[in-house]
Write a protein that binds this DNA or RNA. Structure first.
Lengths: 186, 186
DNA sequence: ATTTATAAACTAATTTAATTAGTTTGTCAA
DNA sequence: TTGACAAACTAATTAAATTAGTTTATAAAT
C-alpha cells in the first residue's frame, strides 16, 4: 500500500484546510484524513499526531514567511526596505489566516523552529542596519517592529477592528508613524 | 442542594486556573469542576458549557481591563495619559497571561462583548483627543496604538522574544518612538 | 521468478473531554 | 407541611485523539 503520499503533501493539505477554516485548531484529524482519502490513524505514518502536525505547520509557516520577506525586500534599503517588509508580512498573514497564529510561539532551544526564527531575526537586523541602527538599539527596534506587525495583523485577522475605516490606510499610517518616530529619536 | 456557588465564583476560579496554566484552552472542565468540588455536569447550571465559559471569561477580562485603564489614566492627559494607558495594558496582560488572549476577539453585534469593547474604544479616543487628534485621524491612531500594545504583550506572553535584553526598556522605547512619530507627522 | 523487508495503509479498541438526559435533593415560600 | 425550583447528581452518548496489532503493496536482494 505504499502510496505516493508524503509528509509534505500532508502538511500542505493541512495548511490549505486550516486557512480555509480560518483557525488551525478547528481542523480535526478526521477532516484532514478525509481530504487525503485515508483513515485517521494512517496520518501517524507522516506526523506525530495532532501536536506533531501543529509543529510541522509552524515550520511550514515560518519558512514561507522568511522566504516572502527576503523576496520582498531584495534590493531595497532604509525606509523602503522596512515598508516592503511590513507589507509582505501583512500579505503573508492575509494569505494564511488559519496558520498565521503559529508563528509567534518561540521554538525550544536547538529546534528547527528556533533556527528559522533566528534566521529571520538576523535578516531584520540587516534591514535595520541599512537604516542606521545597530547593537541593543537595533534589537529594541526589531522587537518594536515585530510588535507593530504582529499586533496589527492579528487584530485584523481576529476581527478586532470593527469600524468601517480603511485598513490599508491604518496600516500604512502605523508603519510611517513608527518610522518617523525612529528618525526623531536617532 | 442549593449551595452558595454562583456564576461569578465559577468564572473567578476559572480565570485563576487559566492564568496559572498560562493558556485558557488548557483548562478542562474536569479541572474546574474538581477545583470547585462539584462534578462536571453541574457546571452547566452556571455556564453554557465550555463555549459559554470562554464567553464569560472574555467579558470578565474586558471589564477588568477597562477598569484598570480608567484608573491608570485618571487625571492625566497627553503623553503621560498614553504612557499610563500603555503600562497598565501591559500590567493587565502580565497579571492575566491565561485569559489575555480572549480580549482580541470582536463581539457579535449587540453583544455584551461588543458593548464593553466600544466603551474602551471611546475612552481611548478621549485620551487621543487630549493629545490633539480627532476624526478618522484619531481612529487610525487608536488602531495603531492597540496594535503596538497587543503585539508587544502577546509576543511577550508567548515567549516570542528570545534574547536576553530588558523587556521593560524595549516596551518603553516602543511607546516613546510611536508617540514621537505621531508628533512628527501632526 | 521468488523471497523478503519495509513503509504505509488498515481495523479495532482505549482514553479523554464535552455534552445531554433524566433523577434526586436541599431550601425557601406559600 | 407541602410544593416549586435551583442545583446538585448518575448514567449514557458523542467526538476526537491515540495506541496496538494486522495486512498489503512495492521494491530490493537472492
Amino acid at each position: 500500500m505504499a502510496r505516493d503520499l508524503t509528509k509534505e503533501k500532508v502538511v500542505q493539505k493541512a495548511a490549505e484546510l486550516a486557512n480555509y477554516l480560518g483557525d488551525v485548531h478547528q481542523l480535526k484529524l478526521k477532516d484532514l484524513a478525509a481530504a487525503l482519502n485515508i483513515k485517521v490513524p494512517s496520518l501517524y505514518n507522516h506526523v506525530k499526531g495532532a501536536d506533531g502536525l501543529i509543529d510541522a505547520l509552524r515550520i511550514h509557516a515560518l519558512t514561507q514567511l522568511d522566504d516572502l520577506l527576503r523576496d520582498a525586500v531584495a534590493g531595497k534599503i532604509g525606509d523602503e526596505a522596512l515598508m516592503a517588509a511590513a507589507q509582505s508580512y501583512r500579505a503573508f498573514a492575509h494569505a494564511n489566516p488559519g496558520i498565521y497564529q503559529l508563528i509567534i510561539q518561540a521554538g525550544e532551544p536547538g529546534s528547527e523552529v528556533e533556527r528559522i526564527g533566528r534566521n529571520t531575526l538576523s535578516f531584520l537586523l540587516l534591514i535595520l542596519g541599512s537604516f542606521g541602527l545597530a547593537g541593543d538599539e537595533a534589537l529594541h527596534v526589531v522587537r518594536g517592529f515585530r510588535s507593530l506587525l504582529h499586533g496589527f495583523v492579528s487584530l485584523e485577522i481576529a476581527g478586532g477592528f470593527e469600524l468601517d475605516l480603511d485598513l490599508d490606510q491604518s496600516f500604512e499610517r502605523l508603519i510611517k508613524d513608527y518610522i518617523s518616530g525612529l528618525k526623531a529619536v536617532s
